[in-house]
Simulated scan of single mutants.
Amino acid sequence: MDKSRTCSFVSFNCKSIKRSADHVRQLCHSSDVIALQETWLFPHDIQFLSEIDDRFGSTGTSAIDTAAGMVCGRPYGGVALLWNKSVFQNVSVINCDNPRICAIKIVLGDRSILVFSVYMPTDTMLNLTEFTDCLSSVSAIIDNINIECVYILGDFNAHPNERFYEELTCFCDEQNWSCIDVQFLGVSSGTYTFVSEAHGSNRWLDHCITTKSAVSSVLNVLFNN
């Protein structure tokens, strides 16, 4: 990879990768790494990720437990990462052991970075423990691999000044991480990443978290609503 080249990282809650495949293919033309949430893939369908664009490598998780037999209702959950193989030629998949988290290690010459895609539970008191456990799992993976430059993209279900956002902010402060999208745009900017079909309300649920070493590498933050 040309070290002077600017790379584009994108996060997209696709609400079924099969239904949104054409849109993800469009993202592949302008992005180098794509973090996906709510892929809604069964375990045996993960291979579908590699069929979206043959220029891109892929990894993903399924949140659907088929061990109990027949699954009722629509699919749910799941995260994935796609990366441009011509831009990032040395990539390894990290075992996260959590259906809400997937990660890759990218080696760029003498430097390595970690990229995560995460999908957090909805903001309720009952889900608070799972939310903090997911953040702790990400932190543990980073500590275990010992890479300083890290990007954590995804749907955190953390709207500014609400419970999960406050928890996320406290965790970032403890870890010396930055919520880089809020840092760039401002918590009172009116930014939103989700529009509720039921209520018509706008929510800023998706974020990009970076470690201290990665902050200076972020040149811009844009949202496409």
Rank of each mutant, 00 (worst) to 15 (best):
I142P: 02
C28T: 01
V87R: 10
F171R: 03
S112R: 05
G69I: 05
L222T: 13
A214N: 01
D32G: 01
Y76A: 15
L41D: 06
R19H: 13
H199L: 12
N202D: 13
W177H: 11
L81K: 07
I152K: 01
Y192L: 08
Y76P: 00
L81M: 05
C179I: 14
T211R: 00
Q183T: 15
M125L: 15
V182E: 05
V79F: 02
L81V: 04
N202F: 15
F184W: 14
H159K: 01
S216T: 11
R55P: 11
E166H: 13
G200P: 02
T191K: 08
G190V: 05
F42K: 05
I113H: 08
E38Q: 07
G69Q: 03
K212M: 10
L82W: 03
V24S: 04
I101L: 10
C28M: 08
T210M: 05
S50E: 11
I147A: 04
I94A: 04
Y119Q: 00
S8E: 12
C96R: 00
A198V: 13
V71D: 14
A158K: 03
T61C: 04
H23R: 10
M120Y: 06
R163Q: 09
P121S: 03
C134R: 03
L41P: 01
R111F: 04
W83G: 00
Q47E: 11
S92Q: 14
I46W: 10
N225I: 09
